[in-house]
Design a protein around this nucleic acid. Sequence first.
DNA 1: CTCCAAAGGTATGTCAGCGAGCCATTGGCC
DNA 2: GGCCAATGGCTCGCTGACATACCTTTGGAG
Lengths: 231, 231
Amino acid sequence: MEHAQEALFRPVRAGNAFEETVERLMQSIRLGVVAPGERLPSERELATRLGVSRVTVREAIRSLQENNYVESRRGRYGGTFVNAEIPKPAPGKEFGDIHDALTLRKVLETGAAETAAGRSLGPSERRGLRAHLEEASTASLAEYRRKDSRLHLAIAEATGSASLTAAVAESRMRANELLDSIPLLEPNLVHSNAQHERIITSILDGDPASARQAMAEHLDGTASLLRGFLV
Amino acid sequence: MEHAQEALFRPVRAGNAFEETVERLMQSIRLGVVAPGERLPSERELATRLGVSRVTVREAIRSLQENNYVESRRGRYGGTFVNAEIPKPAPGKEFGDIHDALTLRKVLETGAAETAAGRSLGPSERRGLRAHLEEASTASLAEYRRKDSRLHLAIAEATGSASLTAAVAESRMRANELLDSIPLLEPNLVHSNAQHERIITSILDGDPASARQAMAEHLDGTASLLRGFLV
DNA sequence: CTCCAAAGGTATGTCAGCGAGCCATTGGCC
DNA sequence: GGCCAATGGCTCGCTGACATACCTTTGGAG
């Protein structure tokens, strides 16, 4: 009986079904899985996939509408569409959370890069990674965070592990909440793109050690930026 | 719109409150956080910490009683106690799950070992790690899986990241379900203890690269054992 | 032009899970 | 010997979430 219990006896549910559904939809939008102008899956489909009732999905979507994240249109070929401009969430985190979030992120993402580099990737996966790299490198400041996240998620997907991808998505969401509270500058972006290039090249070349190394440096960059701004 | 959605649009809840509560309590027992003969926290305390009602906690405990995991005694100094002999769960997994579970486990645990080695640990943490190592090395075949898990959890705790610890616990649970379906032999155990020794030594010496390396070898051992038995 | 498939919008009855309170049992403390 | 604190055991009313069914809107296909 000691403090490993703190991890195991934590609350079984992060929130109620409504809150968790909002959270997921927000993630899809903020991480750029559904881009501005694109349509979310239909309410019925979301209800099935998220494992909640359609009523709950609709309440969640309503909440996103009220916060100007999405708009819904009726009729065939209607649906719920992501707005071009999405609002920024209110920041404000505790310090302990920062260490926790950054530690988990580093473990997951360096591991994902290494694992992806160690697999033999198919042509479509290789093409996908290159495409996401290109997308991120040509992104404007406004789009950057979203396309950056899409790239990192693509790397996680390339591991072939669904639960690792899910873990990266969640960890990234937490990290982005922190990153949103500091400015994103042109030089950071150039530097970041160069690092992305190294990471993806290492993965495509099948060099796990170098992929891990490159990802570690990439993450350490934003991590120290964050600690500098927030401490 | 592509298949990163599979990770983000997965079900929001793993099961109902009852099922998730049973799962957590089972984890505490199987991972050895509460050892045979020891007492679980009181129902009221569990209800608070797990964030569910006491009714739900009691239903979960009832379920564990019916499956001979625990026994409850009334009165002051009573409580719910873990039985000396706990039953094995029914095995039976899909192959895709194995790759998924082992990939996540390797990423999390090698990352945890590396991170723990990179921190400056306090005296009590160092003592704790040594104690868990000793426990595992002197464990009988029957106790081994439990004490092994406790050691690995202690390593995760040594990272100072609660969410990393929680992730390791969950991942380990999944891996153990698989491992329970293959025999545990004396030679494996000796080999495993030697590897534990290397891992802990590297962590206490503050050598991250070597800690990662040792953990990777340790995990690869059981991973290939598993693939051999189940494929 | 009409039809109808597919999308969002609405209403209703049911039930799991919750909160809160009380009861029953036990064993150490005074 | 009696008290009482802390445990598990039990009940009841309330509410969030669910399943299901139906309505309304829309735009392409025939």
